[in-house]
Design a protein around this nucleic acid. Sequence first.
DNA 1: TCCACATTGGACGTAGAGTCCAGCCATGGA
DNA 2: TCCATGGCTGGACTCTACGTCCAATGTGGA
Lengths: 212, 212
Amino acid sequence: MDDDPRVRTWAPVCRAVAALLGPYAEVVLHDPGTDRILAVWNPMSARGPGDPSLLGELDALDPAAPDVFGPYEKLLADGRRLSSVSAILRDADGRASVVLCVNLDRTPLEQAAAVLSAFGAPAASRPEPLFEHDWSDRVQHVVGSYVRECGRPVERLTRADRLAVLARLEEARVFAVRRATPVVARALGVSRSTLYGLLAELRAPNTKDHAR
Amino acid sequence: MDDDPRVRTWAPVCRAVAALLGPYAEVVLHDPGTDRILAVWNPMSARGPGDPSLLGELDALDPAAPDVFGPYEKLLADGRRLSSVSAILRDADGRASVVLCVNLDRTPLEQAAAVLSAFGAPAASRPEPLFEHDWSDRVQHVVGSYVRECGRPVERLTRADRLAVLARLEEARVFAVRRATPVVARALGVSRSTLYGLLAELRAPNTKDHAR
DNA sequence: TCCACATTGGACGTAGAGTCCAGCCATGGA
DNA sequence: TCCATGGCTGGACTCTACGTCCAATGTGGA
């Protein structure tokens, strides 16, 4: 793996970032062609060269895509919370050469900040981010704004429209809350069965059919 | 105990020190005559008024002894490392009135210092995260901050503590999300059964028992 | 030492999450 | 007009996991 010319090209910057951010950051180089890991500096998970990248959503080969993603939040199996940025690094011809990811472990910093701030605080300040007081509002909001965007009322949405709305709701983790499915089905004006059908299609886009 | 005139005299300074040093310091007032505890602010061990002082080596009644001892190191049963100072407080006639002890838990500070020095960077105190995309983070956050507030690790929380934590989680609508209960149980270090028991008690405070 | 009580694992009943299917309706092509 | 296709539907079904209950086990205090 180390003899890959791309690794030779980008390794110095990876080593530099890994050295700068000390033991709390992991630097990963991905191959956008094979969707596999090329090299890892300062690994925090058990992944190594050759393992699948699992980059998923970001499509490096799309020339219209932006070059830098994030920072966004990732979660490790052991509960550590990471701040991650990804960058598409291009060769002289502008083609995507590799994808660089930097994963910074935020938990030690957050612990430190919490300890220090706890010292100044006379009364125990209640940590109350409490955003989605009502998740069903969020459903209405997502559906409503989509309807406004495309100018069609709910009952005239196409199948593709519904898939798009569901993608947003899925991204908002709406289906992780209990009893959410019937609410979404009603908001979309479809039956429970249809909703599950759409969700299945959404979650397995490759397996179009032929599965019988 | 609170009506002891010496406690009335010295309580304000004890409260002040306890308030200043946040949840990480315990202030204890001892009676050098009976060698027993008069009062405790912000207790970290299970000791309370009336318990033996176990001051041992320091003899408050010896007029030749110095007034301030320490700081010296103590070790708690759970492994926390304390920095302690003791002072002999005297009345108007110069007789030893009480012995004041301040025990500061050094472990959180040491952790913070290690993290920050590892980075070699000044502390940019970060505000709490506003967007909690992942509800299991919220669980950890609520439990963690409660533990920090009361200075006891998870496994030494009392039943009342656990009820308080559960109240916050309930208020944060954590139990509306699927598969949350086992996560919370693990975070609190109790079994699923116990968790449901605590939740029942929390949700029906009037119906103490007699329900059979 | 004994008692009271909290905790535990496990068994159990049930709600709700997903799956599957046969039938229905709409659209569109002959 | 008729038929074929494909999505939608209600309903029946399975299975996960939610919540309850209980006997057994610790554990701390008189």
